[in-house]
């Protein structure tokens, strides 16, 4: 009987966790991130709330301040409407212009102050034909950075 009660309690705990995770997950998963258009369309709705925005890094907008360890760039979907982002932290390895990113933080006026910067990567995989094709070149290119 005693082991049985243990299993019942254990099962109930796991079930509770599953339900809690699904509820939390379902709420967040449907809108894991907003688009810049959605945020710009109703600024009052998002003001001072922790949100995620997903978009592309606008070409020519990246400024990296190595001394202050601060990264600023614009995120956009179509190149017309964009949100300037300020991120205190290191530049991720795969961060580059035109790359998809998800930033987490708050809108402060017209600017988005991010405390997390996630880099999306494409489902397209490519191999450059000439250079970088073998390992030696790849390691050299890392060391050169």
């Amino acid at each position: 009987m005693k082991t049985r009660t243990k299993f019942v309690i254990g099962g109930a705990v796991i079930l509770a966790v599953i339900i809690a995770l699904s509820v939390q997950g379902l709420q967040e998963m449907t809108v894991f991130f907003y688009t810049p258009q959605e945020v710009l369309a109703s600024p009052s709705k998002f003001e001072d709330k922790t949100i995620r925005i997903g978009a592309l890094v606008q070409k020519g907008s990246v400024e990296w301040n190595a001394k202050a360890i601060q990264l600023s760039f614009n995120i956009t979907e179509d190149g017309n409407e964009f949100i300037p982002v300020l991120y205190d932290g290191v530049k991720p390895d795969l961060f580059r212009e035109g790359q998809g990113v998800v930033v987490e933080g708050k809108m402060k006026g017209p600017r988005f102050e991010a405390n997390q910067l996630l880099v999306k990567h494409s489902e397209e995989y490519t191999v450059e034909t000439e250079h970088k094709k073998n390992k030696e070149d790849y390691y050299k290119s890392i060391q050169a950075q």
Partner: peptide, 23 residues
């Protein structure tokens, strides 16, 4: 961790995979 910059996020793909494990 190496590509996105995080071990875990609660997005749909990761959450439903964890759910499968828990089930």
């Amino acid at each position: 961790r190496t590509t996105w910059g995080t071990y875990w996020v609660w997005d749909a793909r990761l959450t439903t995979t964890l759910l499968l494990f828990l089930i």
